[in-house]
Design a protein around this nucleic acid. Structure first.
Lengths: 190, 190
DNA sequence: GCACTGTTTGACTGGTCAATCAATAAATCT
DNA sequence: AGATTTATTGATTGACCAGTCAAACAGTGC
């Protein structure tokens, strides 16, 4: 999946950057190609059309995010530490890079009309859910899936809010909110 | 604000519908005008440019949402009932109309680069927050604002998820999740 | 019946853009 | 070395679109 020609990677990077610069999917393939230092025809040669170029960029972002989560989990021991890692990875510096933000926002829009984009979004959802459930199970037993669903939605919702109204301590503040919700859920367990 | 010619309202409706039909902000003023049964020049005459037309549409959606919240609150007595009303209004049938969904998703994108859109989004945030805090206060005292922040983010996050992966019982299921989170927060109070 | 004001349009412009294509260069194979 | 595939581009096309403008139209007051 990542053994492609150099140019493909350049174009994907340029897509993300250009998306961040203009903020909408109406970026032109020409602008992207220019930033990548190649002709626009090459972008079409490799990706077929604009949508597939953008989807490739989104897959790349999700791959990077997945790697960050895995890295965070590797250093965690207890379920509680692992949950903390999963949550913090969702609010990592990378996630708050303004080009990554723009990609995510436009991805949500695209997922509403493109089947492939929705499928990709589903992959992200399931991965996050599975991670949360795995480490909630020892703490919450059969209530784990239900609580995981709420924590996942809370993560997305907080992300959206910090994206539009950023603060310096977004990373910590957002994580703290999710952990507080987790504690409340656990404390309230029967 | 709404004592303007009928045509303005028609154009706003058409904007929302066309946005729902194509799913992205790249709808053309021509398409919108055609759906409204007028010439595109008229849209420019009334709204100046495309962005302002879209913002007017979004203001309309927020106004309808606000009215739904107010209606739900009118029938509620206890703080708990009022919270339930606020939450259910956020997941009303209207909010899940597919053209309203498309408008919200694109609104999030726009809010990332347009000051006026972000300002509008801030209005929505503050209104929701204020409503939640008002009715949480008797139940959670000084912790009300903090909990309200989480519930608001949870509402947005759940909305996003049900929007992309709809279920028949979305309305009830989403509300139930928020209420469950509320109960957990209250039960966990010191 | 005239002046005035707001409404509405058709025609136009200047520009943009996704996608294609024919052609060249470079690499790989046989 | 000749054949075949892959990488890459410049030029082009055909459609489309935001925004402008001058003019036609309709109502209102006088």
């Amino acid at each position: 999946m990542t053994a492609q020609p150099e140019r493909k990677a350049q174009l994907i990077d340029a897509t993300i950057q250009e998306l961040g610069a203009t903020g909408s999917l109406s970026v032109t393939v020409g602008q992207i190609a220019k930033r990548a230092g190649v002709s626009s025809a090459l972008a079409f040669h490799y990706f077929g059309d604009k949508d597939r170029l953008f989807l490739a960029a989104m897959r790349h972002i999700l791959a990077v995010y997945g790697a960050e989560v895995r890295a965070a989990l590797k250093e965690a021991g207890s379920p509680r530490e692992r949950l903390d890692g999963t949550i913090r990875a969702s609010f990592s510096k990378t996630s708050f890079r303004h080009d990554v933000i723009a990609a995510w926002l436009n991805f949500y829009v695209l997922a509403h009309r493109s089947d492939e984009a929705r499928r990709l979004l589903g992959v992200y959802h399931r991965r996050l859910h599975a991670n949360l459930v795995h480490d909630l199970r020892p703490l919450a037993g059969s209530r784990a899936p239900e609580i995981a669903r709420r924590l996942a939605a809370l993560i997305d919702g907080l992300y959206l809010r910090f994206v539009h109204f950023p603060r310096d301590e977004a990373e910590d503040s957002a994580s703290a909110h999710v952990l507080a919700a987790l504690d409340a859920e656990l404390k309230a367990l029967p």
